[in-house]
Amino acid sequence: MIRLKDISKIYKTKNGEITAVKDVNLSINKGEIFGIIGYSGAGKSTMIRLLNGLEKPSSGTVEVNGQQISSATGTQLRQARQKISMIFQHFNLLWSRTVADNIAFPLEIAGVPKAEREKRVGELINLVGLSGRENAYPSQLSGGQKQRVGIARALANNPEVLLCDEATSALDPETTDAILELLLDINKRLGLTIVLITHEMHVIRKICDRVAVMEAGQVVESGEVLQVFQNPQAEITKNFVMQVSGTKESKESIEQILVNYPTGKIVKLTFIGNKTEQPVISQIIKEFDVEVNIVHGNITQTTSGPYGTLIVQIDGKPNQVEQAFKLLETREIQAEVIDHV
């Protein structure tokens, strides 16, 4: 559906060249929700703008829906853009137009006749749950409602791809979840391919099927969301995973325990899928002569299943502790000993 091949983007500035994107190869399948995560300045804004030709690559090719976007110009590019919609962090609605007229704008651009426009706008307003607000102006709406207008506007011309540029970063947590639900719903119902960029792992785990992690213009890691969560490779990915597993907060208490109980072992257990439901801790305590002290626990839902982390302290005779570890291995649970923080 989307294929980026050997993409590099270099900006020329007065102070020399800046490489925003470097040697990126990526392919995104039809109908999936693909997330690109990175801190600001990682190049993800440039990446998403390469997909609708708002930015042109310095080298490499961008292909979307069978069309080469990186080389398209004029009418060809404008027509392609009607099938590659975009929503924005700050919504970017026209304040001078009502909700209905904002949603009608892309239809006007596409040259849809007035009667048909009105009908389509009505459908879209229902789809995003804004009935009764047709004639309000953007200034009269809340952030969440504004993003709903943005989504309706993006869907107006029945696009194949929806690009989300930090679409929930300006919203509060609850509204974020509501908008993410809406995006997931649209993806399921319309079979739309969604590409989103974000700096929040929460967004990735909530709706994405696959994820690419970006750092300094390069994709450092990519794969199925659950796999990346379970087994992050790059340092930056580990940091992002910590955002949602909540292990960042427990760092201090782990430090304290390491000092107070020098004999025991602190172990981080990672469960995925239905393994999260196994009662392993009680098994360990029953079968071996060990003490288990729970430091931190967390279960996170992703679209492809649950993902859990549990940090425990296991204390006891060395051979008993070792056997407990072996049991964990047979259960296919990842156990990682933490001896320093």
């Binding site: 404008r78 651009i109 596409a110």
Partner: peptide, 8 residues
């Protein structure tokens, strides 16, 4: 930018 992204 939004208008351009719509193909205006």
């Amino acid at each position: 930018e939004a208008a351009r992204s719509m193909g205006a």
